[in-house]
Nucleic acid binder design. Structure first.
Lengths: 220, 220
DNA sequence: GATCGGCTCCCCCGTGCGGGGGAGGCCCGT
DNA sequence: ACGGGCCTCCCCCGCACGGGGGAGCCGATC
């Protein structure tokens, strides 16, 4: 059965764009739209979507409050994917603290948007810490590390994965990590892949960046 | 003509080991040995080696003082490669501040030792920041970041290389960096290789680690 | 007993990465 | 006028990396 998505954004253009991108996927179905946060709760109750793609800046009730409201009042709440143009990092951070499962940039490529929806639908946390920082820089926004911390707080790495990430952050290769942990390199690759997925990192470098940005490893 | 090396270490065993490793290379020649720092200056004057492999902990005159003395009193001084078992990070840091061109762990593999000698002989700075951290951790030594800072201070990156490193530290791939700087990917690869060589990093992840450890990029 | 998450290991596969060279153009200092 | 540093781009090449599957084992949980 397909992943059902509710779109919440005050701009019709954005909703149309998201709908076009998501409906192009056979396994994703957009089941409804809302133009402001206040309309979200009844729609969630009615449609019971798997994922809510939620804008942060909206009239009446913003994405953060709407996220809190949904999580507080709905049984088996949907996954919340915060959508942002990212003029304001603060909002994203707050939304994550409010319980959102991931965030997504409007500027992201279609494939990334689709990927993000699938990921949160599967119960994985969050996306794009390093690339958020990168895009934030383009906008002159200095943000990132607080979001990165939120990412890691919510990433729910297993003990082994955390251990692997720590070694990655010391510059060790997969083979070296394998030797250190006395396991096979294939095992390490599995853990590394899990870490990359959970952190939304494209490669080990981005994962290590997130580790530093979040304070997961101490710079000093 | 071969690279000439003067070995300075109070332990004959270490000298013998270094000699064996280095003389196995056709392009490297060990031209002399000294057992303490005090003997270094006259030997340098007499032998005019390209590189001095200098232990830090020695009787009479330690490696730091010996390094200062050589650089202060000899015209066209040799490159100084500080050799350490690294129980003490402080010494290495001081030696680098004193003007040493690189540091090297006794536990390093022969190939790394040879590589280090060749590098400093060619005028490149320094080696193994990330792996130093790694080995330091094995010894329960928490050191690393001060040495990393010294590495970067002395790495003398060109403007372009520094720019590339900053982008690497934001998680960008070579292709993305190329797009950002409006140059070819081959150009970026050249810069990245130069950065890796100067920082003594094996891969971009280690380079980014060094960037964070040294404060070259701000964690926050 | 069955189910689930975590850890382990395996396959195939594409490609980005990094090493090793070289080369031309540019500016700058001698 | 020449060399040297820097930036630019090119070649070949091997390999580690990362994606996408699958599978067995164990302990906890239901």
């Amino acid at each position: 059965m397909p992943v059902t998505v509710l779109l919440v954004d005050d701009e019709p253009l954005v909703r149309a764009g998201l709908r076009a991108v998501l409906e192009a996927q056979p396994d994703i179905e957009v089941v409804g739209e809302a133009a402001d946060g206040a309309a979200v709760i009844p729609l969630v109750r009615q449609l019971r979507p798997d994922v809510v793609a939620m804008d942060v800046r909206m009239p009446l009730l913003d994405g953060i409050e709407a996220t809190r409201a949904v999580l507080r009042t709905v049984d088996e709440p949907p996954k919340i994917l915060v959508v942002t143009t990212f003029e304001n990092d603060e909002y994203v951070y707050e939304a994550l603290r409010a319980g959102a499962d991931g965030f997504l940039l409007k500027r992201a490529r279609p494939a990334e948007i689709v990927h993000a929806v699938r990921l949160v639908a599967e119960g994985e946390s969050l996306l794009f810490p390093a690339s958020v920082r990168q895009l934030a820089a383009e906008y002159g926004d200095d943000g990132g590390n607080r979001a990165a911390r939120a990412v890691l707080d919510r990433a729910r790495l297993t003990e082994r994965e955390a251990e692997v990430l720590r070694l990655m952050a010391r510059g060790l290769s997969n083979a070296e990590i394998a030797a250190r942990l006395v396991v096979g390199t294939e095992t390490v690759k599995s853990h590394v892949s899990a870490v990359l997925a959970k952190l939304g990192a494209r490669d080990r470098t981005q994962a290590v960046i997130t580790a530093y940005e979040s304070g997961f490893v101490a710079p000093g």
